[in-house]
Simulated scan of single mutants.
Amino acid sequence: MSSYTGLTWDHPRGYQPLVAAEEVWPGLITWHTHSLEGFESKPVSELASAYDLLMIDHPHVGEASAQRALLPMDELIDPETLRRLREDAVGASFDSYVLDGHVWALPVDAACQVAALAPGRMDPRELRAWALRPPSWQVLADECQRPSGRMSLPLAGPHALLAWASVCRSRGVPLVDARGYVAPESLGVECLELLARVVSCCDAEALSDNPIGLLDRVARGYLDYCPAVFGYVTYACQNDVVFLDAPRWSDLSCSGSTLGGVGVAISSRVTDPSALVDYVLWLTSEAAQRTFLPDHGGQPMRESAWGDERVNDLSNDFYSGTLRTCRSAWVRPRWAGFSPVQERASAEVRAYLMAGGDVRATVRGVRDLLLDGSRTISGGRRPSGRAAQGVREADR
């Protein structure tokens, strides 16, 4: 059997089940790892030129489509299999890898921003109350409410922008939608000012963390609560961190969140992908998702796995505690070049959250970055010239 090279990210959630799968698929794939930051921002075309099988983040599919860096899964797998997979994927996990009429990756792992509580910070009655009725962002801002002690958010890399996007999602409006239109300035200001009030209540040192660093603090008891961090089942299984739905805007709104997760993709440099297709179909199968992945530290993407009683018993109810949030999470743009725009926009948001300043100037700057970055998107081109100016004026 041919040997292929694979690239995943260097957290146990990312590599542990793949390494364990070598016993099922001996000699098929030699796995390499890179950092979370590489997973979030490294150009997929560069990675696809060096590796055969890739674990990718969905915002990269625009670049993959534009440069044909990946093999379309819909040309390798029959439509009925893809349909069944899509129907069982949590929220938009499957659709986030669909662009320009093709499926560029299959979801393996579903995740979104959810709330995290340190072990033992609440008695069972309080915990049940929080699970049934997550606090609103206004309550967190007005009262700095948390179970006890310290609260914080991860603002490193793209995560400042994504935290703001999650507040916008809880307000009922995406920060930017699939057509490239950006939320009105007035709403952006309202949501960013509210997030800034929450950040003012946070542990300042932890604000510079990425999600892994922040969850390490929660697991060790240095922080008690994080209202919005990408969920990692490993911390629920190994450290008894409790994961719950993200905050809402109000009692009547949904929990606001941004979709994460991981997709598996095949590089276009592969001339005979048949063995890799078999591997991908196994990795995304219901049997592997409900047994193999949870048993080896993975985080499945199938809703049938998220609702499985045994899987929840293994994970301190990680999945049942966050399913509602993941079902409604916002999908980031997938246009080519979004990743560097995401980084620049997040840097502007982070600077405002950390040091203050002109909130309207910050929102305008980010809106301009998003509008200018979305020149070509699925289904057509973003309005330019007078049309684009009309969008800006109407939104302001």
Rank of each mutant, 00 (worst) to 15 (best):
E185A: 08
A110R: 02
L353K: 02
F292A: 05
Q389I: 12
S378Q: 14
R386D: 07
L293D: 05
Q238T: 15
R128V: 07
S208R: 11
S65K: 07
G260V: 02
G180I: 09
S49V: 06
L28K: 09
A206Q: 02
D245G: 01
E37V: 14
S268P: 01
V103L: 06
P247D: 11
P107D: 13
Q342A: 14
R392A: 05
T8R: 02
L117E: 04
L161V: 06
G263M: 11
G101R: 12
D368T: 13
T362Q: 00
L259G: 05
G221A: 06
E40D: 13
S208Q: 09
L106N: 03
P79N: 03
S2W: 10
L106H: 03
S384P: 00
G263D: 08
W282Q: 15
A105N: 03
G231F: 07
V218T: 11
S65W: 03
W25S: 03
V139W: 13
R382V: 03
L162C: 00
A387I: 06
L7C: 09
I29L: 11
P12D: 06
V218P: 04
S250V: 05
I266T: 01
P154I: 09
T258S: 11
E46W: 05
A20K: 13
A92Y: 02
G298H: 03
G260E: 02
D142C: 01
W164S: 04
L99V: 12
D395P: 01
A361Y: 03
G256A: 04
S65I: 07
A21L: 07
D251H: 09
L18W: 04
T362D: 06
P174A: 10
W9R: 09
A111Y: 01
V90A: 10
I29P: 07
Q145D: 10
D52Y: 08
L117A: 07
D203G: 10
H296F: 02
G120K: 10
S3Y: 07
G365P: 04
D245N: 13
A345E: 00
T33H: 13
V173N: 00
A265G: 07
E37W: 05
M354Q: 14
H159F: 15
V44S: 12
C237S: 08
F338P: 12
L276A: 08
L132A: 13
A275S: 12
L276W: 10
L18G: 04
D100N: 15
G385E: 10
E80G: 02
L54G: 11
Q342I: 00
R84Y: 13
L36A: 11
A92P: 00
V198T: 01
R332C: 14
G380F: 14
E46F: 11
T271H: 11
F94A: 08
V167R: 05
G27K: 08
V262T: 08
V242N: 03
W330E: 11
R86M: 07
D57I: 10
C237P: 00
A288Y: 04
D52E: 09
G149W: 02
S339H: 04
G365S: 12
L214T: 07
F292T: 05
V241R: 02
C237Q: 15
R83K: 14
E193C: 05
V233T: 08
